[in-house]
């Protein structure tokens, strides 16, 4: 059995325009139904395996994103959803925007698009899920070495 059969996600809205958030929720709705892969939207960093971030990073939400990331137990994967979360997108030049999510925390999967389509988000989550298994293996190896 693989731990990737049960990916629980937490979704955080950075400075997104809400377009991507709606698409994230949309992928959990009946038409796309992410739950058929065992995905649960937990809303609690301590239960989550996958961190979905939409929108860019600004000075105010940087510590929040870092805080959520630090509260998630290993293994964990970060998915940046939407071009804003990837590198700032159309808000890139704004005075308050620092850039994509990787300005605050390490990002594993980038899902571009404005707004990212549900199909793309599901694809990103599935890539994240495969990465979870890999990270778990690494964790096991590290535990053995120590």
């Amino acid at each position: 059995m693989k731990i990737s059969k049960s990916p629980w996600i937490i979704h955080y809205d950075g400075s997104s325009c809400n377009g991507c958030d709606i698409e994230v929720l949309d992928s959990l709705m009946p038409k796309y139904d992410l739950e058929r892969f065992g995905v649960v939207n937990t809303g609690n960093p301590k239960h989550a395996d996958i961190f979905l971030v939409t929108g860019g990073i600004n000075a105010q939400n940087k510590p929040v994103v870092q805080q959520i990331y630090s509260q998630m137990p290993f293994p964990k994967v970060v998915v940046a959803v939407g071009i804003c979360a990837c590198n700032g997108g159309i808000f890139k030049e704004c005075y308050n925007i620092l850039g994509g999510v990787d300005k605050a925390i390490p990002v594993d999967i980038y899902v571009p698009g404005c707004a990212a389509r549900p199909e793309a988000i599901i694809d990103g989550v599935m890539k994240a899920v495969a990465l979870l298994d890999k990270k778990r293996e690494e964790m096991k190896k590290e535990a053995k070495e120590n």
Binding site: I3, S6, P30, D33, G38, P75
Partner: peptide
Amino acid sequence: GRQGPPVLQPFYDIYKLFNKQ
């Protein structure tokens, strides 16, 4: 009106939880 997870999903969840930090 959704397809839903597999019936054994709770066991996958438990397995995952035992494998997490």
